[in-house]
Design a protein around this nucleic acid. Sequence first.
DNA 1: CGGGTACTCCGAAGCGATTCGGTGTCAGGA
DNA 2: TCCTGACACCGAATCGCTTCGGAGTACCCG
Lengths: 344, 344
Amino acid sequence: MYSETVARPAVSRATLSRVAADASVSISTVSKVLNGRMGVSDSTRARVEELLRDHGYNRRNSGLSVAPLIELVFDAIDSAWAIEIIQGVERISRENGMSVVLTESGDRHSPSPDWIDGVMRRRPAGVILVFSDLSADHKHQLRVRNIPFVIVDPAGDPAPDVPSIGSANWSGGYLATRHLIDLGHRRIATITGPDDMMCSTARLSGYRAALEAAGIKSRDDYIVGGEFHHEDGIVRGRELLSLPDPPTAIFAGSDLQALGVYEAARAMGVSIPDDLSVVGYDDLKIALWAGPPLTTVRQPLTEMAEEATRLVIRLRNDTQVDNLRIDLATSLVVRGSTAKLVTS
Amino acid sequence: MYSETVARPAVSRATLSRVAADASVSISTVSKVLNGRMGVSDSTRARVEELLRDHGYNRRNSGLSVAPLIELVFDAIDSAWAIEIIQGVERISRENGMSVVLTESGDRHSPSPDWIDGVMRRRPAGVILVFSDLSADHKHQLRVRNIPFVIVDPAGDPAPDVPSIGSANWSGGYLATRHLIDLGHRRIATITGPDDMMCSTARLSGYRAALEAAGIKSRDDYIVGGEFHHEDGIVRGRELLSLPDPPTAIFAGSDLQALGVYEAARAMGVSIPDDLSVVGYDDLKIALWAGPPLTTVRQPLTEMAEEATRLVIRLRNDTQVDNLRIDLATSLVVRGSTAKLVTS
DNA sequence: CGGGTACTCCGAAGCGATTCGGTGTCAGGA
DNA sequence: TCCTGACACCGAATCGCTTCGGAGTACCCG
């Protein structure tokens, strides 16, 4: 019966021999499955893995079977963005007696094959992925070993049973655009992030919704895309400002892009905020330091990281965890880069 | 002999029997000590504990005696500064099949007591400290276990046998000041970092040397100190610009400080670079993005981090390593925040 | 001096897990 | 039909560790 495998009393420890007996195989075979050795048929391996999981098998007696480690995986550690996440994860981990293993996967969609081997060796208490998704195989391996994982700001739309921490991207896009509209702007362009990321598309959708609500038709030539980097802000900003009918306001997909727009504007003699209003996204520290200070949508990165860490620890410790998907609120921070449109 | 403790083979795993043999007691006794059971005299317990530590005994499994881990310790992960270091360490570690454990010590002088316990449990291949120094006790513990460590940008003047990676701070200070002198400036102020950090004092010394070489007397009221943060740049910048005889150029101790000076100048209606030239230090990405782009002393942070990682790996693998103290070159990057002094 | 007691420590048994050599099975080829 | 090699799986040996009973020893008290 199903309930039998789930409601295992856990009074007595799970051992290889127990699992072996349940699976009707030898102890050696179970050991091989456990250590990923070859010489086990796929069907047997699957059956044994299933049973290992059901038994909640815990790598050698109950003592210290999991290392006090949290794995933190970035697709790229390439901006001040990452710092805020790292800080949040590190702090909460430390408060819970955990250390942080940091990995740069180099690929947005899945960490390298080597990575999972290292994780299996280290047996961390949990895994936190930023942006990166996991391959089905990796997810399966983690689940078999009972290692919980959480995705921060998931790139695609993750499966419903994958715990994730996000933020209210649609609202962010809406708020930013609405703010510009309230200032009198009508020609409002936006620079988005990559198309395949949910956060980008949600923000774009918020942007469109705000325009529509104000009765402004959205224009395709005012919607340009790129990565979230500074460079993209420069290039796309220049393109937008070179249009025959240039926008009077730009909603950038990130603070870095917004600073790129600053640079493009500077190079073209366009003054911010007099000739052009700019809104960023993220509220990194540099947003405050820019000249003029950047109006931006505050995304609580550190809080998201902290929440993700707490969630992954809860998933490890508690049998039942609610709220597997948490979205934190975004808010608009108005500074000096946006101004009332002066109709000349 | 010194070399004896260093040249521990570390080839085979630590086992109870090995420790027992060394301590001339039975395996059972060691087991009891390990598990805090009674029935062991205080003297024996102390001796066994000592040996367990020396062997780096690490509680069952884990096969190898050293984990493929590099410990990276910051006093504070609080600026874009850290990103560049982290990236460098992570990249080289990964290339060498290592993962990175990141810790924020919260204290510039020595990581918390808990920290060393974690390190001993993990048995990393090496430790990289940024800024933070180590207590004599921690150094001893690491040396006994044959875990090499490297200090990046050492705060104080480290002992001669402590491997370290620095940069040419004196030259950096000299170059920056010289550049300002060459532009015709005579009233050149500087904002330093903390007094107790070697990098600060070396830069200050370079600053003084450049002034002296040009026959300019250094003024005490032009030398102000603070932390390396943005906030300090604002406060100190405002102070300097409020002097009855304000400087026409400021050499800041960091890019963050320099951006703080930008803000102070903006608030006081002082234009950069027309009324005030500013030189930063570090060449973070934001230096390029600032308006105007910041003239700064490039400190090769990523290269320093990479070099530190390579060094720590060499220290682990090779019996003999030369060049325990490496200083990388600094260079001046001239951008838009410095200009010829216009004598009015 | 003899016997009891408390303490320290060891040896052997036993357990969980890994590993290696070996066995059974099955498919393909002569 | 038999041989052969690949593969899946098992059993026994072994390893690392814990535990328990008991031996050795020092000390105290009569």
